[in-house]
Amino acid sequence: MSKPKYTIAVTGLNAIDSPGPGIAVIRGLKVAESFDVRIIGLSYEAMEPGIYLHNLVDKTYQIPYPSAGQDVLFERLTYIREQEEKIDFLFPNFDAELYSFIKLHKRLEGELGIKMYLPTLEQFEARHKPNLYEFGTKYEITVPFAQMIFSANDIHAVTEKMGFPIVVKGKYYDAKIAYNNEQATQYFNKISAQWGLPILLQEFVQGTEVNVCGIGDGNGNLMGAVPMRKLYITDKGKAWAGVSLDDKELIEITRKMVANTNWRGPFEMEFVKTSEGKYYLIEINPRFPAWCYLTVGSGQNQMEAMVNIAMGKKVEPFTDYKIGTMFIRYSNDLIVDIKEFEKISTEGEL
C-alpha cells in the first residue's frame, strides 16, 4: 500500500540560541515511516532560520502575532489554506500562541479542514504556574508548595510557614532564590516591577532536573514518554546536551498525570528529583520541547504518532525506548541570498 502524503503546517521555526521546537518537530515528521510530508512553515519574523532551511521547509508564510487577535490569525490561515491544495495538520509550538490556537481549534477543523492535537482549554489553564500547586493536589502529583501573593507585606506570613530558602517567581518568567525576608522582598519588588502581580512564593526543592517528553490520547492513555536529563545547559538555561534515562518511576508518574487529567496532545513535564529519590513537578509545557527529536533518536517518533492519532489511524502506545541515547545540540551558519529575505519581508511568503 502506498503511503499517504500529508501537508503539515508548523510554527516555531526560530532555531536560535533559545530555540523553538519547530525544526525538531519537522525533522521527526520528515523521517516518519508511515507517511510522506509537505511542510508549511508558519513564521512570525523574517529571520527565523527555518524559513531558509529548504531541505526541511517547503514553503513559509508569515502569520500575525497572537496579540493581533484570533480573527486576524484565522483570516491569514484561511488565505494560506487557499494557496495550498490542502493542509491536513497544524503544529503550534509556542506557549504564547497556544491559547489562540486552542480557541480556534473547532473553526480550523470545521471550516478549513486543518486538524490539531492539543490539550483542552481547561487543561491548558490548569497547568499555569500560579495554578500548578492546585493542579498537583487535584491529580495527586507532588508539586512544591506554593502560594500566590499580591503584596510584599504577605511575605513574612508565608516564609513563617515554609522556611528558607524560598523561590520567588514571576507569573510568567523569572525565578530567584531568597534566603531571608529582606531578600524575598527585594526580589518581590524586582520581579513584580517587570512581570506584574501576583508573585509566587514556592518551596525550594534541591535536586536534579529531569524532564519527560510525551503524548496523551485524551482518554487517559499515555501514548509515549521519554525521560531525559540535561547534561549541559546554556547560559539561558536551555539544554545543550542530554541523555535518555532509565527511570520507571518517572514514567509511572507521567502515566498517572495523563490518566488523571485525560491529557490530550504533546507535553513536556519538568521535575526535580531530590537526593531521597522524590519527584517534584515544576512545570508542564503543553507542547513538544525543542529536544523532542531525542524521542525519534531513542525509538519513539512521537510527532509521527501524534499525527497518526489525529488522522484517526490505529496507533499502539510506545512501550520502549533506547536508554542512553544522547543529543548534542549544534549551531550552524546558513548562507542566505538577500533576495530571499526581501521576498519574505515584502511578500510575507517564501
Binding site: 523574517a46 502569520i63 486576524v72 491569514r76
Partner: peptide, 15 residues
C-alpha cells in the same frame, strides 16, 4: 525599517 523584527506586514490587517 525592516530588520527590527516585531511587527510584520500581516500584523493587524483586520484592524
Amino acid at each position: 525599517p525592516l530588520n527590527t523584527g516585531l511587527m510584520n506586514k500581516y500584523g493587524n490587517r483586520t484592524e
